[in-house]
């Protein structure tokens, strides 16, 4: 069974857009331009991706899949990098992290017989893993910066007691990882109860039996959970080092930024 939304219905989505627009106008939020621009941009992007996917799905998987995965990883890297521009080598670190995570997860999916190597399975599933890993890395970077700024005193105290940077940073890294992982743990706990996850919703709407949709959802949810954990740990373990110099002294964020730009 294949379902479709008639094109005229899609135009009626404008009614939905009118609601935030009216709110923005009524409360003078000044978001009118943003709302219109993001609606146009989002629509154009999705149709573009739809066209690209149609084209890629027709290519041989061994060609289409790597092309699409590379594009997704590069776009995700550019996006996550913004959260940690102060750090040296942040682009290459995020890029290699995402590549490692995607390759690991994909290998496991394929070797455990969870999905087959076809674009219509690999690309949407990988997209979710890459997207969530990107968000996790961004969150971890932001949290790491604020932990190190807020706990400067404790970090100096730990160093002055003879701690190495790794020992001194332990507590801040622990808090960073906690903050990055807790939303995912909570999400996993309430999965299906509070909201039906996006992938499952999509499959059910597409006519797939709920129990099959659930199997896919399980695979993706647990995969996302583990890749998000790896992402947060990976980026925190690489980036915390930049807060210290060779002499085990604590640096300020602006000094790290300066050295990153040198």
């Amino acid at each position: 069974m294949e379902r479709d939304i008639p094109t005229y219905s899609l135009f009626l989505l404008l009614v939905f857009v009118m609601i935030p627009l009216t709110i923005s106008y009524y409360y003078s939020l000044g978001l009118k331009k943003d709302i219109i621009w993001s609606t146009i941009r989002g629509t154009a992007q999705l149709f573009f991706v739809g066209l690209v996917l149609t084209y890629l799905f027709d290519l041989r998987p061994i060609i289409g899949i790597p092309i699409m995965l590379s594009v997704m990883i590069i776009v995700a890297t550019f996006h996550a990098r913004k959260k940690g521009e102060e750090f040296p080598n942040v682009f290459i670190s995020i890029l290699s992290g995402l590549v490692i995570i995607e390759l690991t997860v994909l290998t496991m999916w394929l070797s455990f017989g969870m999905i087959s190597f076809s674009p219509d399975e690999v690309i949407p599933m990988s997209g979710m893993v890459i997207g969530n890993s990107m968000v996790a890395m961004g969150l971890a970077l932001e949290r790491l910066k604020s932990e190190f700024e807020q706990n400067r005193g404790q970090l100096i105290a730990a160093l002055s007691l003879g701690a190495t940077p790794k020992q001194a940073a332990h507590l801040s890294i622990k808090k960073t990882l906690n903050a990055a992982l807790i939303p995912n743990i909570d999400q996993l706990k309430t999965i299906g109860l509070v909201q039906l996850p996006g992938m499952m919703t999509g499959l059910i709407l597409g006519g797939v039996a709920p129990i099959v949709a659930i199997k896919y959802q399980l695979v993706i949810s647990i995969s996302i959970f583990s890749s998000v954990s790896i992402s947060a740990i990976f980026i925190s373990m690489i980036m915390y080092r930049f807060f210290f110099n060779q002499q085990m002294q604590l640096l300020k964020l602006e000094d790290i930024k300066k050295s990153a730009n040198d």
Binding site: G153, Q154, I156, A157, A158, S160, L161, L171
Partner: peptide
């Protein structure tokens, strides 16, 4: 050993 102006105790 260094004692700082503020105690900066660990949680």
């Amino acid at each position: 050993g260094l004692v700082l102006q503020q105690p900066y105790l660990f949680q």
